[in-house]
Design a protein around this nucleic acid. Structure first.
Length: 168
DNA sequence: GAGGCGTTTTGAA
DNA sequence: TTCAAAACGCCTC
């Protein structure tokens, strides 16, 4: 694929945003804090130098990442490239984008929102497949009974982010 | 409170 | 096409 990977420095480390011609395709958490997987190596641009539009998206994404990491309301996001995702995943991720900062919903509740009340487990799978955590706030989804559930970048990040948002 | 089972979706063989 | 796995929820003991 023709993608560009650009660093987003924050007080918590360097996030890595990956872009296609259509928009932001993925966001990697800072190396060292990410759970297994091996992503998050040093950022490098693949292919051509970043086009002007990608630089524009990157500045938007950088602002959004820093705001989200600080638990503040998210400024406008660049276009997100969800090509390759299933309709179910897109429905789940769209619903996630509507959750305001500081508020959490249960997997089962999210399942009802998208019209699949029995799909709580599938919602969890879709959250786990989310390539853009933080900006698509899967950390605001928790299991029933107040349990945390899981998080692709590690539960420590989930707790940290929820704590900061609750503090706002 | 703990354990087991059911539901739904995804990805690999 | 089939099967196993998964960031869950509900029911039973």
């Amino acid at each position: 694929m023709d993608t560009a990977a650009l660093n987003i420095p924050t007080p918590d480390g360097d996030f890595v945003a990956r872009y296609s011609d259509a928009g932001l395709v993925a966001l990697d958490f800072p190396a060292g804090t990410k759970a297994p997987g091996g992503l998050g190596q040093s950022a490098r641009e693949e292919g051509r130098p970043a086009a002007a539009k990608i630089r524009r998206w990157h500045s938007q994404a950088a602002r959004a990442v820093r705001a989200a990491a600080a638990g503040q309301p998210c400024p406008p996001l660049p276009p997100l490239d969800w090509s390759g995702a299933t309709d179910f995943q897109k429905a789940v991720w769209s619903a996630l984008l509507k959750i305001p900062p500081g508020q959490v919903v249960a997997y089962g509740e999210l399942a009802r929102v998208i019209g699949r009340p029995n799909s709580a487990r599938a919602v969890g799978a879709a959250c786990g497949a989310n390539p853009i955590p933080l900006l698509v706030p899967c950390h605001r989804v928790v299991a029933a009974h107040g349990q945390l559930g899981g998080f692709s970048a590690g539960l420590k990040w989930k707790q940290l982010l929820l704590g900061r948002e609750a503090h706002e």
